[in-house]
Amino acid sequence: MAVPTQSLLTLSTLLLAAGCATQVDVNAAPTVWLMGEVHDNPQAHKARYEIIAGKVKQGWRPAIVMEQFDREHQGLLRTAQDECKTAVCITSKPWVEKWQWELYEPLIQLALDYQLPLLAANVSRDDANRIVKGGYSAALDPDTVAHYELNKPLPTALAEQHRQNIVEGHCNMLPPQVAEKMIPAQVARDVWMAKVIEQQAEQRDVVLIAGNGHVQKDVGVVPWLPVTLQETTTVYGFIENSQAGGSKQFDVLAQVPAHPREDPCEAFKAMMKK
């Protein structure tokens, strides 16, 4: 990894580091940053933006690969980036998925201002549902299934970690058989993000913008990257102070104050009752 030992950094330390970004070595091996998020935490978004912007303003020109855009919209995203001068112009397009776009718009604006490619990397909800019902081949092409050996059982540790994450992420309320069917959908998202990153890394450095679960080193995108690319990959986790553990999952761990929100488990419990 680009950062050999895990570092625990505060928000202020990360912002200071962003302001001290060094000149980029354009002849170096491709650099990949996997940068996580708590989707609705503004301070985590701000900290991540400042790190990326600090280096871009020093001359870095990575591709920005985003979970927030579904892969089938790549052509539309490319056209929008060519036509739009503002981030809002892109995020207001009718094909754009529902996210808290005000949190992502500074980064998208940075991409527009510095002509950084934006890449759509998510397997859509519809495709994920197809995979839940019919397996990987229901939504992934045969070459991808073969290349990543998705026609074979997952390694036991990887499957178990996915299972645990899915169960905990759904408030420990999912029936076991449902959680089991959801594992391939999560794997498909990680695989597709890894595929986009690998393709882009042949041409330039890459930054992935995705939830913390997708950038965890033992269960997210990393296991699906080529070993040579893993060696130049740095994993950033942005977690809230109230969240325990996780330090071994990231090369750089930034802790930010918890964002006030309603208990998602209460909403999930109500949905399950229906």
Rank of each mutant, 00 (worst) to 15 (best):
L174V: 12
V123R: 04
Y136R: 07
L150M: 05
P184D: 01
L116E: 11
L174C: 11
E149D: 13
V178H: 08
A139F: 05
Q100G: 10
R125E: 01
P142H: 05
V187R: 01
I166N: 00
Q186N: 09
R125V: 10
L150P: 03
N122R: 07
G169C: 11
D127P: 08
P142K: 09
N151P: 08
A138M: 04
K133R: 12
W192I: 11
I183T: 03
D141C: 09
R130Y: 00
G135C: 01
L118V: 07
L118R: 13
P175A: 08
S124H: 04
L174K: 09
W192H: 14
E160W: 00
P117Y: 06
D113A: 15
R163D: 15
A128R: 02
Y104S: 10
E180C: 02
A128D: 00
L140P: 07
Q109L: 08
W101R: 11
Y136H: 07
A121F: 00
P176T: 09
E149Q: 15
C171S: 08
K181M: 13
L150A: 03
Q177V: 06
R125N: 05
R125L: 04
H162C: 12
L116S: 13
L107W: 01
Q109K: 13
R130T: 03
R130N: 07
V167L: 03
V178C: 04
W101T: 14
I131R: 05
R125T: 04
L154N: 10
E105W: 02
D113S: 15
K133I: 11
N151D: 15
Q186R: 11
L158H: 11
A159Q: 15
A121H: 06
L103T: 06
C171G: 10
I166G: 00
D113Y: 08
L116M: 13
L154W: 01
E149S: 15
A146D: 05
Y114L: 10
D113I: 08
A157H: 08
